[in-house]
Amino acid sequence: MKKFAALLLALVLLVTLSSCSKPDDKQAMLKIGIIQFAEHGSLDNCRQGFIEGLAEAGYVEGQNVTFNVQNAQADIAIASQIASTLVDVEKCDMICAIATPAAQAAYNYAQDKKIPVIYTAITDPIGASLANADKTNPGEITGTSDLLAVEAQMKMIRALMPDAKTIGILHTTSETNNTMPLNLYKELAPTYGFEIVDKGIAAGADIPLALDALLPQVDCISNLTDNTVVSYLSVVLEKAKAAGKPVFGSEIEQVKLGCVAAEGIEYLELGRQTGRMAAKVLKGEATAAKIPFETIANSYLYINKDAMATYGIQLPADLADRAIDVLAK
């Protein structure tokens, strides 16, 4: 028992030491806690953009704000513990939550303490109960949604592949961010003369088999921002290439890796927009509850000329002026 007590004592000491090392004397410093649900390109860009957006509005790290950045590594229980730490222990002045489960965990703890929560990279804030059905906020919480530009994407596919009839979509059944764009695809498909064939997978390991089943039924593949599918993009691209079917991405990184084209939103920009909203709250111009959540209106057309050449796809003149060649230096 002595040893155990000694160990406990050591742990307690460690905690005290670590809290001593943090400067507590700077009263003017605002503390912003950032909970990022998982580590991946788009979410990292959101975080980066958020910090930049705040800096543009005068909240510069080290000068008048400190950031406490925590990553839950896609673990819900850890996200919950991080939220509880940021709210109850660190007593942050504001929480920025990146991706749905992080925002839900943050709001769960911050709601009663009236600490504003600013979220980003949430596809469907209403479906996640972070916004009311009439687009008002349920409490001191607001942010930005990263709903895909599904309609623009369909228009683009129609322009690039005038004869295509079916679009194949792979999606991981456990990822909530897929539900809304997938429904949008299905809803809008008849308008553009498409049929959607979707295949659900439970894990990355299912992707090759799902592709074998999907590819013969479709004229092309269009990706969602599905984390699992995006991680296995090389497998998707290789299989699709063997079958002679082009793959369309959902954001710039996928096009860089070999997708033909994408109508994507810029996550860095989304983050900056979120940062500017946060600055409004910090300045006291409006409370989080009063600022409606925002979506990004503009999408960018990213193209990969090498991939287009592989499939003999021509870029129509009316798209050429806004197309961004991701391979161009």
């Binding site: 040893k3 160990l7 905690v15 670590s18 809290s19 580590e39 990553n71 839950a72 590594q73």
Partner: peptide
């Protein structure tokens, strides 16, 4: 503890494992 010590996200599981091991060893020493 691992969270409030400000561990890098990538190291979290490692730190948790080490703390876990420490407790086990402490139990054995006793």
């Amino acid at each position: 503890l691992a969270i409030s010590l400000g561990m890098e996200a990538t190291d979290m599981k490692l730190i948790t494992a080490v703390l876990f091991l420490l407790i086990l060893v402490a139990g054995q020493a006793k």
